[in-house]
Design a protein around this nucleic acid. Structure first.
Length: 428
RNA sequence: GGAGACGUGGCUGAGUGGUCGAAAGCGCUCCCCUGCUAAGGGAGUAUACUGGCAACGGUAUCGAGGGUUCGAAUCCCUUCGUCUCCGCCA
């Protein structure tokens, strides 16, 4: 959502931002709608002012028994009332038109975000680690998992259809261990508050973070009035919707481990094998609410927190800055972290860290104010995966696979795995 | 799921159709007084939009949305939420 004043004051800059997203200019249309709307409001408010005044006079006239004056005033107000009804209708129509338009526009990228249309135009920022040498042909995670008889896509499909998985035994435990490990790291060392959030939310929450109205097809919805969250970003970011926060308490950092649900409409045929793209997966999410001044540094910090998970697990990765065309709807700048998958011999996304500026804050009306000030401002919101649990499991399996198909448990996870150091192999 | 009660400003809490954006108290801010401490006096203290260079105005908001009325915090409807009792349930 955009600031109308900003569009009014810098129409060219606004259109330039849209242009980078591949959209045509909108500023003049928006400004015209807004001007029309404000003119209507000014007129309507004048009429309302007179109505309020007259109504008070009626009260006074009645109190003093001046019935003639009262009925004259009532006649005047009757006329105003009819006028006001049409004003209200016009204003409502105009406002809706304007809101529909504004809420469908993606956020404008920051200047340092590279141009480009898809992921091939992303810019590598840094890499960490080197892939382990393997003397055999590296297997993909589903080959390993199925051979271990701990990963079952067919039986999952029996009850739930495609894009679901059944993990059993040590792999189920590994999934759980990875989630615990990540949450503990972010809570104990990165100063995030641990939060348990609802997995079902109302449409207003999805509107607040930008999934609605445009991306309803990507979500699962209940027959009632709820939607399954596609990411904990939704509940975590919406916690403070409608509130005015004290700036001295910012930034607020919250983390949650939740299941995420995505319809994956439009990705049919992509990543059909294995756990990379599922309708349901676990993810640890990192959300920050900051002042406008803090958000740039917070994005770097957050990305670092996510990277730390991979470092502790000894998983090689690289960080890329997304180009304009690959960024999400609400983002102004995004870093993706891509982990090395030996089975695919390529880096795959395992985290995405974004700053949304005040884009979401405007939608959900989260403001801040420094102590003693009267002026409020919209906060900045940031989100990032820290990390996607399922994909981390994939990465652990593929990077730590042994020639015999067993999987070495990374040191950091052993306390969460009953201190075993290998999954499969002779000891299982 | 059944029955009922309630939702007012940072908090407590008045207010059942008229000058109420809203009493009072608490809290908070500023000022005055007071040689510490304590107490006292005065002023101020919501948000958004909008008009104006500004000074200063206007409009809306008493959970939310709609309705009745010349006029609604007050009446009616819908909805969301909270609480109590019963039932059910992890």
């Amino acid at each position: 959502m955009f600031d109308l004043k900003m569009i009014r004051d810098n129409p060219d800059a606004f259109d330039a931002g849209l242009a980078r997203r591949g959209l045509g200019p909108m500023a003049s249309v928006i400004i015209a709608l807004d001007a029309e709307n404000r003119a209507l409001m000014t007129e309507a408010q004048a009429a309302q002012a007179r109505r309020n005044e007259a109504s008070k006079l009626i009260g006074r006239a009645k109190a003093t028994g001046n019935e003639d004056e009262a009925s004259a005033l009532m006649a005047e107000v009757g006329v105003l009332k009819a006028k006001l009804a049409t004003f209200e209708l016009d204003i409502a129509t105009q406002t809706e038109k304007l809101n529909d338009l504004l809420s469908s526009l993606p956020n404008t990228p920051y200047e340092d975000v590279p141009d480009g249309v898809d992921e091939s135009d992303n810019v590598e920022v840094r890499t960490w680690g080197t892939p382990r040498p393997m003397a055999w042909a590296a297997r993909e995670h589903f080959e390993l998992g199925e051979a271990l008889q701990m990963m079952d896509f067919e039986r999952a499909a029996k009850m739930s259809g495609a894009r679901f998985v059944l993990l059993t035994g040590q792999l189920a435990r590994l999934e759980r261990a990875i989630g615990q490990f990540m949450i503990d790291l972010h809570v104990d060392e990165h100063n995030y508050a641990e939060i348990m959030v609802p997995s079902l939310v109302r449409s207003e929450a999805l509107y607040g973070t930008g999934q609605l109205p445009k991306f309803s097809e990507d979500q699962f919805r209940t027959t009632g009035d709820h939607w399954l969250i596609p990411t904990a970003e939704v509940p975590l970011t919406n916690i403070h919707s409608g509130e005015i926060l004290e700036e001295e308490n910012l930034p607020l950092r919250g983390t949650a481990l939740t299941q995420c649900f995505r319809s994956e409409a439009g990705s049919s045929g992509r990543d059909t094998r294995g756990m990379i793209r599922q309708h349901q997966f676990n993810k640890v999410e990192l959300v920050s609410i900051t002042t406008p001044e803090q958000s740039d540094a917070e994005l770097e910090r957050k990305t670092g927190c996510a990277e730390e998970v991979l470092k502790r697990l000894g998983l090689p990765y690289r960080v890329v800055k997304l180009c304009v065309g690959d960024m999400g709807f609400g983002a102004r700048r995004t870093y993706d972290i891509e982990v090395w998958l030996p089975g695919q011999e390529r880096y795959r996304e395992i985290s995405s860290c974004s700053t949304c500026g005040d884009f979401q804050a405007r939608r959900m009306k989260t403001r801040c104010r420094s102590k003693g000030e009267k002026q409020t401002r919209f906060v900045h919101t940031l989100n990032g995966s820290g990390l996607a649990v399922g994909r981390t499991l994939v990465a652990v399996m593929e990077n730590y696979q042994r020639e015999d198909g067993a999987i070495t448990v990374p040191e950091a996870l052993r306390p969460y795995m009953g201190n075993i150091d290998v999954i499969g192999g002779s000891q299982n």
